[in-house]
Design a protein around this nucleic acid. Structure first.
Length: 104
DNA sequence: CTGGTGACCGCTT
DNA sequence: AAAGCGGCCACCA
């Protein structure tokens, strides 16, 4: 039996390059639609950024949240743009870059 | 066990 | 529109 965090990390790691997922989406795929907060907490304690692309996880509006925790608001945006994700008005074009949850 | 906190979500003021 | 509050779940003191 894996810990809650492991399941969350597992889902986040499956997000393909050039796509983004929402907290609710990750929570749902992890098997618990109500883990939205836990997902955020799990990423907050993110043990390894190299393995867990937290920059690909955004809130319901496609915004990088109060991204101060990333060490710089622009940080996440630059990373995503490098992967081909287009930002509009400080947020990603969700209908275009949202991860289906099926593609690996 | 209790209380406090958090990178969320949604409704109500 | 912005802020507040509650609910959800997990972790820490």
């Amino acid at each position: 039996m894996k810990n809650s965090y492991e399941m969350i990390y597992d889902v986040v790691q499956q997000i393909p390059r050039g796509k983004v997922a929402t907290y609710g989406q990750v929570a749902f795929l992890a098997g618990n639609p109500r883990w939205s907060r836990v997902v955020g907490y799990a990423l907050h304690v993110n043990p390894d950024q190299s393995t867990i692309p937290c920059h690909r996880v955004v809130n319901r509006f496609g915004e990088p949240s109060p991204a101060f925790v990333f060490g710089g608001a622009n940080r996440q945006i630059e990373l995503l743009q490098s992967e081909g994700v287009e930002f509009v008005d400080g947020k990603v074009d969700l209908p275009r870059y949202i991860w289906d949850g099926k593609t690996k």
